[in-house]
């Protein structure tokens, strides 16, 4: 009974905050609600006993991806409210089309989805004594070794791509090289001369 009550509480918060992500006028507030969504999904995962997935979800989505979004949104000073008032009519048909497509897709998946075959194939039986994390590792590194590695390679490619796109040499930039700084010897920077009276020093 307890977990059922908790399930409904978390789901209610999840759905409300998902709605608020779309509805709130301030983009930063929208992102706050998105983070609340992630945390609630993690709570739902914990309720069904998938603690590894729950914490990974918080670490990756709330801890990394949402922060990157926030960085971008906070730095941009977009007059979102004014723009929304002016242009919402132009975007409305497009939005309706997108929503309809998503709705149809959801309904189609729901009709064709058969949980029996889906779960029985990959999952480790609930009775086994190994912990969640061990079970996942055992499956990932044996049965799904190749897809797992390919996923890694795809992510690596994307990462390298992002770096290459952003890498440019700035010619005007003044840089310090710690190597050069520490390798300077006294004779390079100091000249000791004996000063002759009334002649000064030749620079």
């Amino acid at each position: 009974m307890f977990s059922a009550i908790m399930f409904y509480i978390y789901s209610a918060i999840l759905l409300t905050s998902a709605g608020m992500v779309v509805c709130s006028k301030n983009l930063v507030h929208a992102l706050l609600f998105l983070i609340l969504c992630f945390v609630n999904v993690a709570c739902l995962f914990i309720l069904i006993g998938a603690e590894f997935l729950a914490f990974i979800l918080i670490i990756i989505y709330a801890g990394a991806i949402a922060i990157l979004f926030l960085f971008v949104i906070m730095m941009l000073d977009i007059g979102f409210k004014k723009q929304l008032k002016k242009e919402w009519k132009t975007y409305l048909p497009m939005a309706i089309v997108v929503c309809l497509v998503l709705l149809v897709e959801l309904i189609m998946t729901d009709i064709s989805f058969d949980p029996g075959t889906f779960i029985a194939e990959g999952a480790v039986s609930a009775e086994s004594q190994v912990s969640n994390t061990h079970a996942m590792g055992q499956v990932l590194y044996t049965k799904y070794f190749l897809p797992f590695q390919v996923c890694g390679l795809i992510l690596l490619t994307a990462m390298i791509g992002a770096i290459v796109l952003n890498l440019r040499e700035r010619k005007q930039r003044k840089m310090q090289s710690p190597m050069e700084q520490t390798n300077v010897s006294v004779s390079d920077v100091i000249r000791i001369t004996s000063v002759i009276s009334k002649n000064g020093v030749q620079l």
Partner: peptide
């Protein structure tokens, strides 16, 4: 809990929000 260390990483990744906000 079995994933204590993971929990600690998750919590410390949420730490950032206090400062950012």
């Amino acid at each position: 809990i079995n994933v204590g260390l993971l929990y600690l990483i998750a919590v410390s990744s949420l730490c950032v929000y206090g400062i950012l906000f």
